[in-house]
């Protein structure tokens, strides 16, 4: 059974039907994870007790398999009366999982900011929120644009996990086709190429963003 190019082309539209879902999940997760990680990282830095609690939560998120987390929300929570649509569970699960990693990236990005920046903000009597939002966050983002972009690509690549909780994303779609026709090479290759193209687009966008942010330093 050789590779059938014509067949490969013919299944593209069917797989692309799931593209909007994959795209939506990716965008939502990138956004939610980025915001959640921000809140988590600054909570970790705020108080002593709150900081320890948050550190534990972040470590716990990063030390459990993503599938376990997804199964937990999807199968265990309904047992206690909380049933959420698969899409919501998926976005929630992936966002929380990656927020743990992004919080670590943020931490590195903040640690790289000289202490004098915090001192100056304090000496100018800025509130904590102003310090974070106007002084620290912009410099942090500039420090971490590249690793953050990597995690955005990771989030894209993690969307197939959602197949296990019945979210109709692309790899799941490809698998459905494969199990109907018993031809695996074509659907898997097609879906691989689509993922590759999307990842390249994200990487390029991040690079452009990074260059723009670096400019204020280079000038």
């Amino acid at each position: 059974m050789g590779f059938d190019f014509e067949y490969a082309l013919s299944i593209v539209p069917q797989i692309l039907k799931a593209l909007p879902t994959t795209f939506l999940v990716t965008v939502l997760c990138c956004f939610c994870a980025a915001v959640l990680a921000f809140a988590m990282e600054f909570t970790r830095r705020s108080g002593r007790i709150l900081g320890y609690v948050m550190r534990f939560i972040i470590d716990a998120i990063r030390s459990t398999p993503i599938l376990a987390q997804l199964y937990f929300v999807f199968f265990v929570l309904p047992f206690y009366g909380l049933t959420l649509p698969p899409m919501v569970v998926g976005v929630l699960g992936l966002s929380v999982y990656y927020s743990g990693y992004l919080a670590e990236v943020y931490k590195a990005g903040i640690d790289a900011i000289p202490r004098g920046q915090w001192d100056a903000a304090k000496a100018l009597h800025l509130s904590r929120w102003d310090t974070i939002s106007v002084i620290i966050a912009p410099q942090m983002l500039r420090n971490i644009a590249a690793p953050m972009g990597n995690y955005f690509v990771s989030i894209l690549k993690a969307t197939p996990y959602l197949a296990v909780i019945a979210v109709p994303e692309m790899l799941g779609e490809a698998f459905d086709i494969a199990s109907d026709t018993f031809r695996y090479a074509e659907p898997i290759l097609v879906v691989g190429i689509i993922f590759l193209s999307l990842a390249l687009v994200i990487a390029q966008l991040v690079r452009l963003l990074e260059e723009r942010m670096q400019q204020s330093l280079k000038r």
Partner: peptide, 17 residues
């Protein structure tokens, strides 16, 4: 009352962005 103070640092500590 410390809001009445202003400070200049050895390393300037200007905001680079």
């Amino acid at each position: 009352p410390r809001h009445k103070t202003g400070m200049v640092f050895q390393n300037f500590n200007l905001f680079p962005h």
